[in-house]
Design a protein around this nucleic acid. Structure first.
Length: 589
RNA sequence: GCUUCCUUAGCACAGCAGGUAGUGCACUUCACUCGUAAUGAAGGGGUCGUCAGUUCGAAUCUGAUAGGAAGCUCCA
């Protein structure tokens, strides 16, 4: 595939390479704009880049753009491809470029060009009658775009700002071969099959009532998973020297004024009246934690004090942002606040990082780290922010982890390290976070008595590992496609009697397994074995235990497992002791 | 919240140039007592998200409203 760079150079780059793929999709975006302009000449074009999977273009239409229009545009794009138009690149001065755009009335392009340096030569790309200012690169001829599909129409604010005009964004994907498009579409279908909202319903994990958007409901299987996650969490936190507290779900207004939430976070808080007083339902657990710290005088010997809390918090998220378990209005944060001396900061940050790494590895997640810096809307002095940001940065660097900087995305009280996990279709979600905070200790005037007998101000950090247990479960569902490893599977073993005659023996078997704390169910319906196996498989249960005449006589079970390869499902007959051992071994993996 | 789209039995869907709803799975009952991904038969269940309007008549047309999907903005 030949690619035309902005300096006029033509290079051979394959579609598999980043530059080739970007050029291919970028050119597809131009073809999209060309098709739109042919069909609807009054349309204003904004921007149209290549993205991770395909491309989009933002337009301002002077009419209501519907799905029907989308089909027409796609057809027109295919016509353009048939014309085998080749691309040319050339330069204009800023004035020429502006004049050109004035003539065509492209107000968004004018805005963009006006921001460029006056001395700069501006490159234009052109195919057929369509020309647009663009830094390229592009592919040499549109005829290479053999497969095109426009995927969706969405709204997008001009320049990503809520206050600006909302434009119409058209998403599409294209490939050099038709087979690649088919493959891609199939991949998307497969990803949808592991959507946690679909699996969560099918597997009886959670639901959300119409009467409570964003307020997840855990069903019996889901609450087993949630409780197991919490058990695991408590175990590793005890090991790491954390104590656990539980503070109220709502507290009085003055507390939130003191913490800064009332001023800086009120739009996201639910508040209510209790007698004559204003209360707020907590959006975070930290202020309660501060009060606990203040309950008694603290010594430097007490630090670092690691205080954990599984806090149920509520945030008034906008309706359009809600998404299954991933983005909700009510969730459980596996929060902890660490109060420490200045000389302990580095060790504590790195200790939390190690714990996060341990947990994510247990589930087989790869993750990426972001360092989020001071937002516009925030409290505290520049020096404190700088100190805190540097401390986080040094800690990550010290751990040898790579990270990207996310400018202005910190919490209002401090910078943070965010740990992001991917969902089934590649969207990333923030789960873990470590936030350094010099503000709350000041606002709450907390202290400890140092070795010198004087009062000192501790430094504090907020951290979560799961982030939100709800979100983490959502990610887990998609990550495992519902096939939870044995240690966290809601039902670990399903006992399947071959016929009703063996129901009693099946119950005996189940009772023995239960003795060993194995989560077991019996399918004693009057159905054929094949049917019961099918159902157990669809429920993604790790182990199936089949009992019939042989097993009853031998006081044994025949085991079949979910994860093994085809033809190796059957592990054969074994004693109950061996079966228990098998499940316990599976739990550790 | 914004843009586009969607909303029919528990679930997946069909019906729609307007004349009071169908299929599969699930569920219930009966028969079969059956060895590794669905035994057969019979039966129950919805007034088509909600509210208004157009019409002799609306699941099918219009409007509002609720919930949902994708994206944007915002965020764990």
């Amino acid at each position: 595939m030949k690619v035309l760079r902005k300096d006029g150079e033509i290079v051979e780059v394959s579609f598999e390479e980043q530059e080739g793929r970007k050029a291919f999709w970028h050119t597809s975006a131009h073809v999209l704009a060309q098709a739109v302009k042919r069909l609807y000449p009054e349309t204003k074009c904004a921007i149209g880049p290549a993205i991770e999977n395909g491309f989009y273009y933002d337009f301002e239409f002077d009419f209501h753009f519907s799905e029907e229009n989308l089909m027409k545009v796609e057809e027109e794009m295919k016509e353009i491809v048939k014309e085998s138009l080749s691309l040319q690149v050339y330069e204009k001065s800023k004035e020429e470029a502006l004049e050109f755009m004035e003539n065509t009335g492209e107000k968004y392009k004018i805005e963009l060009i006006q921001e460029l340096d006056a001395a700069e030569r501006i490159t234009f790309y052109k195919q057929g009658e369509y020309e647009e200012f663009c830094a390229g690169p592009h592919i040499l001829n549109v005829c290479q775009i053999k497969a095109i599909k426009l995927l969706s129409v969405a709204g997008a604010y001009w320049r990503g700002n809520e206050k600006n005009q909302m434009l119409t964004r058209i998403y599409g994907i294209s490939f050099p071969k038709l087979s690649q498009l088919e493959e891609y579409l199939q991949m998307v279908e497969e990803a949808k099959a592991r959507d946690h909202r679909k699996l969560g319903k099918e597997l009886g994990i959670f639901t959300i009532f119409d009467e409570g958007p964003g307020l997840p409901v855990f069903l019996p299987n889901g609450i087993v998973i949630k409780n197991l996650l919490i058990d695991y969490w408590r175990k590793i936190h005890r090991r790491e020297g954390y104590v656990e507290i539980s503070t109220p779900i709502m507290l009085e207004r003055s507390l939130w004024e003191k913490s800064g939430h009332w001023d800086f976070y009120r739009d996201s808080m639910y508040s209510l009246k209790v007698e004559e007083d204003d209360y707020a339902i907590k959006p975070m657990s930290c202020p309660g934690g501060m009060l606990v710290y203040k309950l008694e005088p603290r010594s430097y010997r007490d630090l670092p004090m690691r205080m954990g809390e599984l806090g149920l918090v509520h945030r008034n998220e906008k309706s359009g942002t809600l998404h299954g378990l991933m983005r909700v209005r009510s969730f459980t944060q596996d929060d902890a606040h660490i109060f420490m001396r200045g000389d302990q900061v580095m060790d504590e940050i790195q200790g939390v990082m190690r714990l996060i790494d341990e947990v994510y590895q247990k589930f087989g997640f790869s993750y990426k780290i972001e360092l989020s810096t001071r937002p516009e809307h925030s409290i505290g002095s520049d020096e404190d922010w700088q100190l805190a940001t540097e401390a986080l940065e040094k800690a990550v660097q010290g751990m040898g982890k790579s990270y990207v900087i996310n400018e202005g995305d910190g919490a209002f009280y401090g910078p943070k390290l965010d740990f992001h996990l991917k969902d089934s279709i590649g969207r990333t979600w923030q789960c873990g976070t470590i936030q350094l905070d010099f503000q709350l200790p000041q606002r709450f005037n907390i202290d400890y008595i140092g070795a010198d007998g004087e009062k000192h101000r501790p430094i504090m950090l907020h951290r979560v590992i799961f982030g939100s247990i709800e979100r983490f479960i959502g990610i887990l569902i998609e990550h495992y496609a519902g096939k939870f490893p044995a240690w966290i599977a809601p039902v670990q073993v399903k006992v399947l009697p071959v016929s009703d005659k063996y129901n009693d023996y099946a119950k005996e078997v189940a009772a023995v397994l239960e003795e060993s704390d194995i989560r077991v169910e019996v399918d004693n319906r009057s159905e054929k074995l094949g049917y019961k196996i099918r159902e157990a498989r669809m429920d993604k249960i790790p182990y199936m235990v089949i009992v019939g005449e042989n097993e009853k006589n031998n006081e044994s079970v025949s085991v079949r497992q979910r994860d093994a390869e085809i033809d190796k499902h059957e592990l054969g007959e074994m004693s109950l002791e061996k079966m228990i051992e098998l499940v316990k071994r599976g739990e550790k993996e």
